[in-house]
Amino acid sequence: MKKKQTTVAFRGTPEQEAQLKAVIEKYRGTKGAMLPILQEAQDIYGYLPIEVQTIIARETGVSLTEIYGIASFYSQFKLNPAGEVAINVCLGTACYVKGSQDVIDEITAQLGVASGSVSPDGKFSLEATRCIGACGLAPVMTINGDVYGRVKKNEIAGILAKYK
């Protein structure tokens, strides 16, 4: 899948940068360490924006393009931060059959946030997830950990209103 570039301003702190540099130091000289570095960088920042990947490129000497190639290849790496309100819609088989794509489309239409991205103010993020194991509630979505089952299109506005 094509990854979407973030439009949210980077809010990294010097502490996070120090943590990241310690991680890179830990792996210095280890061959094939880019994956664990990226994983730990994502643990620190929550996602991998250009600012974070640039630090990694500078510190490791691996080109930014090569790093971005890895980050854009694996679906576990995020280029967008989670929003204050993180919406996850299950796109597992059962939910999909029950119409979760319509749910995603409706949320995108109402919030202007495409799947895999975050609103420019960092408020709402929308992710399509794999099966979350609640097929009995299909189609299912979670918002900041709250679970909503058997979601119907016409209920979405009401649900979202609670988080605005």
Partner: peptide
């Protein structure tokens, strides 16, 4: 030793380009 282009994204979307498009 320039490495300014690489394979980005995956599957049908794989394409050659520069970091962050």
């Amino acid at each position: 030793g320039v490495s300014v282009i690489g394979a980005l994204d995956r599957g049908y979307d794989t394409h050659i380009g520069c970091a962050f498009e």
